[in-house]
């Protein structure tokens, strides 16, 4: 990977312990405060500040309150569209999930490299996205079995299936159900990783071509730079869409648990 000059496009994903907490541990497990943890804390704090601005509770809202209410209203509409009125009780969870992932994606895109800092996108780590995915999947399982008991397994048998087809279809549906947490977690991880790698590779082109010769720098370097601008805009879109997809799929799965088919 590190063949293109000194620029390693994967280095941005490296996790480094900060503030000398390398050996901080809890019950034998390492819990070093890393750059990844720093960005998790940042996302939580930024979200906290954002929502505090929406707590004025005025009848005629200001801009900030309007923005916060727009986001909660967006999640409310998403849940009501997918689950129905019973979906309201999931607003806190899906809102937290959506905003946390959205802010993680967007904070990781900040051009902090310009001032010598290293932005980090913890949603490009499947250890993080996997935890979120397993959390959503567990809620689906808990709600499904709590509401419907073993009747929840009827989710795996589509309506009007002939008796002969029930065993193979049950297996197929079961596999597709069990794949959900992986698809949920891996989708986010892959989308964020791919975008960041692409941006770093193009940035490497700009730097290496400019170093090689002015002619190459003006042709290849300029073209790559223009492409980077476009892809950065695309990455902003991907950051929002991936957060939305995560929230949307969570609400679709919650619908299965709430209403079966």
């Amino acid at each position: 990977m590190a063949e293109s000059g000194k620029i390693d496009p994967m280095h941005q994903f490296a996790i480094e312990p900060l503030f000398g907490t390398d050996h901080l541990s809890l019950g034998g497990f390492n819990i070093a405060f890393t750059n990844s943890a720093l960005y998790m804390v940042l996302a939580a704090v930024v979200l906290w500040i954002f929502v505090i601005g929406g707590m004025k509770r005025e009848l005629v809202p200001g801009r900030w309150q309007m923005a916060v209410e727009y986001m909660t209203g967006f999640i409310k509409n998403l849940l009501i569209a997918n689950i129905g009125d019973k979906g309201r009780k999931y607003i806190p969870y899906v809102f937290s999930l959506f905003m946390f992932i959205l802010l993680a994606n967007l904070l990781g895109m900040l051009p902090l490299g310009l001032v010598g800092l290293h932005p980090f996108t913890f949603t490009s780590h499947f250890t993080a996205t996997g935890v979120l995915a397993i959390m959503s999947f567990s809620i689906v399982l808990i709600v499904g079995f709590a509401k419907h008991g073993f009747h929840f397994f009827s989710l795996f048998i589509p309506h009007g299936t002939p008796a002969l087809m029930i065993p193979p279809l049950f297996l197929i549906e079961l596999v597709s159900f069990m794949v959900r947490p992986f698809s949920l977690g891996l989708r986010l991880f892959v989308a964020m990783t791919a975008g960041h790698v692409l941006l770093k590779v193009l940035a490497g082109f700009v730097i290496n071509s400019a170093n090689a010769s002015p002619a190459l720098g003006l042709t290849v370097g300029t073209a790559s730079f223009i492409l980077m601008i476009g892809i950065s805009a695309l990455e902003m879109l991907v950051a929002v869409i991936q957060a939305y997809v995560f929230a949307l799929l969570t609400s679709v799965y919650l619908n299965d648990a709430e209403n079966l088919h």
């Binding site: 390492n30 819990i31 405060f33 890393t34 906290w48 937290s96 780590h125």
Partner: peptide, 27 residues
Amino acid sequence: SSQIFWLLLTFGFVFFVIGLGMVPKVQ
């Protein structure tokens, strides 16, 4: 272990303080 620990801690804060504590009031 560090990733899972900090994610649970931060997301726990987001869910319990912001999601359960503040979002219902905003909504």
